[in-house]
């Protein structure tokens, strides 16, 4: 009910914002947020795009070598499917299946067989693991959605897959 600090005639036109100004602006922001909320995933999507962009300056992008027909992005369920990528001299094959929790299990093999650092980039973060000496690795449970796999070996140039829909 108190309107005592409102409506001053001598409100400075170009001064520091006072508390009442800040309250009005905060209210305005609330209303704008309610009227037209920023999509929940926009920040994460943008950050994902940026991390991929940064990545492309550091790694070689693998080309899709072979993709069975089932691998067309399944909307309802994740089909078990195998995708192969290559960029001389590295070849990466991944097999996707449904994890017990309903997420996605990624089984991967990389050649030439050696120990790779494996990173799965996705909006909202990344998951890391390591392959064994034979180049095989497992990401047991990752959320569905767009993702890109990055493999690095020692100090050599890394490789990354294009964005795939898990």
């Amino acid at each position: 009910m108190s309107t005592d600090d409102l409506g001053h005639d001598d409100h400075p036109a170009d001064g520091v914002l006072d508390d009442a100004d800040l309250r009005v602006l905060a209210g305005l922001r609330r209303v704008l947020d309610a009227a037209d909320p920023v999509p929940d995933d926009l920040v994460e999507r943008s950050l994902f795009a940026l991390s991929l962009e940064a990545l492309h300056t550091q790694v070689m992008e693998l080309q899709l070598l072979e993709v069975p027909e089932l691998a067309v992005r399944g909307e309802a369920t994740v089909e078990a499917r195998t995708i192969t990528f290559t960029a001389e001299p590295v070849t990466v094959m991944i097999s996707l299946s449904v994890s017990p929790s309903g997420g996605v299990r990624v089984d991967g093999w990389a050649a030439p067989a050696t120990r790779y650092e494996v990173e799965l980039l996705r909006p909202g973060g990344s998951v890391r693991t390591e392959s064994d000496d034979d180049g095989s690795f497992v990401l047991a449970d990752v959320p569905p959605g767009p993702a890109s796999l990055v493999l690095r070996h020692g100090s050599g140039t890394g490789v990354s897959t294009p964005v795939i829909e898990l």
């Binding site: 009910m1 108190s2 309107t3 600090d5 409102l6 409506g7 001053h8 409100h11 400075p12 036109a13 170009d14 001064g15 914002l17 009442a20 100004d21 309250r23 009005v24 602006l25």
Partner: peptide, 24 residues
């Protein structure tokens, strides 16, 4: 910009002053 910002905020606050209970 600075002047406009100040004037607009003052205007909005003046309008709000005619409302009961906005700025409780």
């Amino acid at each position: 910009v600075g002047v406009t910002r100040g004037r607009c905020l003052a205007k909005l606050r003046a309008l709000l002053a005619t409302e009961e209970g906005w700025d409780a």
